[in-house]
Design a protein around this nucleic acid. Structure first.
Lengths: 227, 227
DNA sequence: TTTATGTGTACTGTATACAGTGTTCAATGT
DNA sequence: ACATTGAACACTGTATACAGTACACATAAA
């Protein structure tokens, strides 16, 4: 049984599977480690050491570190050495304000142009949230849901901005869960209905409703965090 | 006459002049070239070629290209080759919307906490704008003025977001001036009074005034650009 | 003329090597 | 004790080398 190549170009054009580079792999590995708290705040990130651990050379590591710095997860000191960023409580309010601003803008844009495709995917994501086993998993799905809303706004600069804060949000949530899990247990039952409501209002065609729903969502999130 | 080292550590701590790296130099050189239109939209940016022209190796060039991609000035294709981004007219509206959102947020934050230092610097910048010789110079000073306002908002994520759009704004303005300089000649006399008014309202302590003034400023800018 | 097939080329992705620099810490002098 | 010097160290910044791969073009087959 031989594999025969198609003589005519096959019309079924697959998404051109993105040859992930080592740099991208390193980025997501490190990002996950930081979000999960495996690399605690303040940890030094020597290029040599990381390269050895991940079994690659320093080059992909350097590129990963640059990316993570843009995402606000790590910081370089004056001579180029990087550490996991140490978020203090004063960092929360600005981050929250920025998130609210971006998501409110997204809500306004989404309501005008949401597609069937968007709705289908968002509904699917809500269903996945129903199956979440623990808080950490749920909060990552939560953030992913909001990322999908941003995407539905179809505004490239907005997506770029969101990218600069998304990981930081994940860090906050994970940290908060680790430190005071019991406080958030109730939220596990609120997330799904909240998102259903939000999605409904984003589909309503009313800018007021969409904005109000998003403000509500942001307020909920606000209560989760510090103090 | 020998130079004697101070025996006691000198209290006068100078800002630790940032040993600019070749990568940073390359970034600003390339950024300027793109904004100025010397590297037209669509130009390929082979690492070898750029490295040779700037007299460095590919490593700093790679890092510069990554940075410029984050700033939205260049794009990588599916196999990692980069080109100067080609802004079409549809790209303008989203960029404008994002800018307005960020600057409005900044206005709200600034009015609560602007300092004497901020005001002094902003006034100085307005005086520099009075001396601008041509439109290009003026528009760069204009963007720098707004960047300083963002800085005065003292919100780190906001600054990071602004960084993702700033260069794109400069590209739009420069491009617009090149293509239809005469349309904008009148604006040369409006920028300074507009900024004086804006600064006054940012200092007024009234959130309403500050927001209104910034909206006005954004509307002015809006008229500069396509159609 | 079209459609397949090979081959060269231009480029990136990655590894490796080396040079330079701030920091630390011990040795030295006062 | 204290300041000063110096040498070793740990690390980044940069250059260079090599390997792999998508594309273009030329050539061969239908």
């Amino acid at each position: 049984m031989t594999i025969t190549a198609p003589t005519k170009s096959p019309k079924l054009h697959l998404s051109p599977l993105s040859r992930r580079s080592l740099a991208e792999d390193a980025t997501s590995r490190l990002r996950r480690a930081i979000v999960a708290g495996e690399l605690p705040a303040g940890s030094p990130l020597p290029e040599d050491g990381l390269a050895a651990q991940l079994g690659v050379s320093r080059v992909p590591i350097r590129e990963a570190l640059i990316e993570l710095e843009q995402e606000g997860l790590i910081e370089f000191d004056h001579r180029g050495r990087s550490r996991v960023r140490d978020f203090s409580e004063e960092d929360f309010e600005p981050l929250f304000a920025m998130r609210s601003t971006l998501e409110l803008m997204a809500a306004r844009l989404v309501v005008q142009q949401i597609t069937k495709e968007d709705i289908k995917e968002l509904e699917l994501m809500i269903r996945e949230q129903e199956c979440a086993n623990d808080l950490t998993e749920l909060s990552l799905l939560d953030v992913a849901f909001h990322a999908r809303i941003i995407q539905a706004a179809r505004n490239r600069p907005l997506t770029a901005c969101w990218r600069t804060i998304r990981s930081q949000i994940e860090v906050w949530l994970a940290k908060s869960h680790r430190e005071q899990a019991q406080r958030h247990l109730s939220s596990i039952n609120l997330t799904v209905p909240g998102h259903q409501r939000l999605l409904a209002d984003l589909c309503s065609g009313s800018e007021q409703k969409a904005e109000a729903a998003m403000k509500m969502e942001m307020a909920t999130w606000r209560e989760w965090l510090p103090e």
